[in-house]
Nucleic acid binder design. Structure first.
Length: 360
RNA sequence: GGAAGAAUGUCCGAGUGGCUAAAGGAGGCAGACUGUAAAUCUGUUAGCGUAUGCUUACGAUGGUUCGAAUCCAUCUUCUUCCA
């Protein structure tokens, strides 16, 4: 008999493993906080340092009473440091030891984020969990590049820890890098362990590599992370990745997939993905997923949702966002149940079979 | 009654002798999306065939030409202007 974990955070307890919806710009796209609480049943969401730094600016959010008050969300918030934008904004930035110079994607102006600046911004936002400013290396990347990048991320982590003082109310997590190289992952863990963070994340996977490689790095890295502290796998993911993460001992995951796919008309179900634009749903008056307990599945048909997308009505994106988010939050609830009954492997097998995933 | 203009693929619309099975949209069909520059992006969209290809296509019918969506004649329909 095993037990799942609980994170004790300033805005409430969070049972783990947990899936965290992403609300980059102080909003989980198209969702109200009430829907996130009452329909999705989420206890923690993400937001983003880089995007809020550019707009509306952290001082404004501080004057509004902090990010929770500003966006009317009284549960927990984890803020990403801007490190992912070092990766995703591609050639619109320049990396130096001191930090990263970004060219704003909004107006082209130059913005500089250092480890210290990222801490300052996240302090002003007042998130419950802050992330160290890191470099998320691209895939593929040479061993030489990844080694240097990982070492710099570790030096940046030390600077983050040194700068961050509000440790009572804001937990700062370190981020393990090292790309697809197992020994570099090990080195990164050692470097960060020495800094004694209250939680650790795996960054830099789920960046376009094949699933076998993702699993290889996940299965190698997660077990080496400190046992008594939360383990967060960043940017994951699809149902199979979430289950694999839980099996490897991961406590927290986040991903844009449920909301982005929702806006692009894809529904996640226990029986695989559905593209709601497909002609086969035109006269299908059944629910999205017979095994789902969400607001959308309780009230609307596939035919109606398809009609909304065909007509480019925003309600379609909203209804699918509720469904996809609830689907992943619920998936983790089921994973926790399975863990408490010591049936996680069986749960995975059943889920994979129903969904149509290949075992790996 | 007279004058001018227009008719293009599912729709809108470019094309004014060969490089045109026909630009570009829209619509249709399908695919992708993993710490959000994403309500976005990609492919495909006359028929048959695995394919070289063949057939049918630019209002209708006939003609000129080696070759026509493109030039000519007649007809049909529509738009605008004049009486």
């Amino acid at each position: 008999m095993q037990d799942f974990g609980v994170l004790h955070l300033p805005h409430g307890d969070v049972e783990t493993p947990v899936f965290m919806p992403v609300g980059t710009q102080a909003t989980v796209k198209s969702m109200t906080p009430e829907e996130l609480k009452d329909e999705v049943k989420s206890h923690i969401i993400l937001s983003n340092t880089y995007h809020l730094f550019l707009r509306p600016g952290p001082e404004l959010i501080k004057d509004a009473g902090g990010l929770h008050k500003f966006m009317n969300w009284d549960r927990n918030i984890l803020t990403d440091s801007g490190g992912f934008q070092v990766f995703s904004l591609g050639d619109m930035r320049k990396i130096t030891e001191e930090g990263v110079e970004f060219r704003s994607h909004i107006d082209g102006t130059k913005k500089f984020i250092s480890p210290e600046k990222s801490m300052e911004i996240q302090n002003l936002l007042g998130s419950d969990i802050m992330m160290c400013f890191d470099e998320c290396a691209p895939y593929p990347a040479s061993r030489d590049y990844v080694e240097k990048s990982m070492a710099m991320t570790a030096r940046w982590a030390a600077r983050c820890k040194e700068y961050h003082k509000n440790t009572e109310n804001q937990a700062l997590f370190g981020i393990i890098q090292g790309g697809m190289y197992e020994d570099l992952r090990e080195k990164s863990i050692q470097d960060l362990k020495a800094l004694d963070f209250p939680g650790y994340a795996i960054g830099g996977i789920s960046v376009g590599e094949p699933k076998e490689m993702f699993l290889k790095i996940l299965r190698h890295t997660a077990p080496l992370m400190p046992e008594n502290k939360p383990r967060y796998l960043m940017g994951v993911g699809t149902p199979d990745y979430l289950i694999e993460a839980a099996i490897s001992g991961i406590d927290m995951c986040d991903c844009v997939i449920p909301t982005r796919m929702a806006r692009n008309a894809t529904a996640l179900t226990h029986y695989g993905r559905l593209n709601m634009l497909n002609a086969c749903h035109e006269r299908d008056f059944t629910t999205l997923d017979p095994d789902c307990d969400c607001y959308t599945c309780k009230n609307y048909s596939r035919a109606y949702i398809r009609h909304l997308f065909k007509s480019k009505e925003i309600l379609g994106a909203r209804l699918l966002s509720i469904h996809n988010l609830r689907f992943l939050v619920r998936l983790m609830e089921d994973v926790r149940d399975a863990i408490s009954q010591d049936l996680l492997t069986e749960f995975k097998q059943d889920f994979y079979k129903k969904y149509g995933y290949e075992e790996m």
